[in-house]
């Protein structure tokens, strides 16, 4: 039996190609062409417009300075890549409204995964196939997924710790036991007969 999802797949792929998701496919320089075997998807449009976008509102009048330096507001703080790169790794120096990939191909913010994927190729592959990222709405039919920046702030991509929701309750009239299991000392911190003794903490 051919499933409807399978049937509509080439169609959706065609539409996506025309819409520009795979617009670089025709480019001889472009090595990566997505994962055609991945189930078709649409990326949920960005929720809110960017505050300082378009960049060219200002940068039209400013000279391009390519050397890395400390930037102030309204530029966001950059905590990405552990200092390996800065703005122009992702933003097109000529047209800051655009992003660029390596090799430099202009992409817009709706194809952000092509940009992120140039470093995070494993995550990108998983994202195409559904093991990374987040599907919304329906498990069935049209596959709507969120793009990278819906969850990861591109300038500070690590997801920040936060307060968890309240812990579960116990039956009314009863009380949660006060005790906790005694913490197990990991093997690397305990002295075990026949094993090398744990070393003193060298650093600090």
């Amino acid at each position: 039996m051919i499933r409807p999802v399978t049937l509509c797949f080439p169609l959706v792929y065609l539409i996506l190609t025309m819409a520009g998701v795979a617009s670089h496919a025709a480019d001889p320089q472009a090595g990566f062409q997505g994962y055609p075997e991945a189930p078709a998807f649409t990326v949920l449009p960005r929720e809110a417009p960017l505050k300082n976008y378009p960049c060219m509102r200002c940068h039209d009048f400013l000279k391009v300075k390519t050397e890395p330096r400390q930037l102030r507001a309204p530029h966001p703080e950059l905590d990405h890549g552990a200092g390996r790169f800065w703005c122009l790794e992702c933003h097109d120096p000529e047209n800051r409204n655009s992003l660029r990939t390596t090799p430099p191909i202009a992409t817009n913010s709706n194809e952000i995964h092509t940009l992120c994927g140039r470093c995070h190729a494993t995550q990108e592959r998983d994202w195409y196939f559904g093991a990374h990222g987040k599907r919304v709405g329906l498990w069935q039919g049209e596959r709507e997924i969120l793009d990278c920046v819906r969850c990861h702030n591109p300038h500070q991509p690590a997801i920040q710790p936060r307060k968890p929701q309240p812990p579960p309750a116990v039956r009314s009239g009863l009380e949660r036991p006060a005790g906790r299991p005694e913490p197990v000392v990991p093997i690397w911190e305990q002295a075990v007969d026949g094993l090398e003794q744990p070393r003193e903490q060298q650093h600090e």
């Binding site: 499933r3 999802v5 559904g130 987040k134 599907r135 069935q140």
Partner: peptide
Amino acid sequence: GRLPACAEACPTGARVFGNLLDPHSEIRYV
């Protein structure tokens, strides 16, 4: 056809739900 509430609520996308009989489903990929 909707996703379970837990899958929808997960803020990290850790939850993958789908049809095990569909070879192209996300869960089968996982």
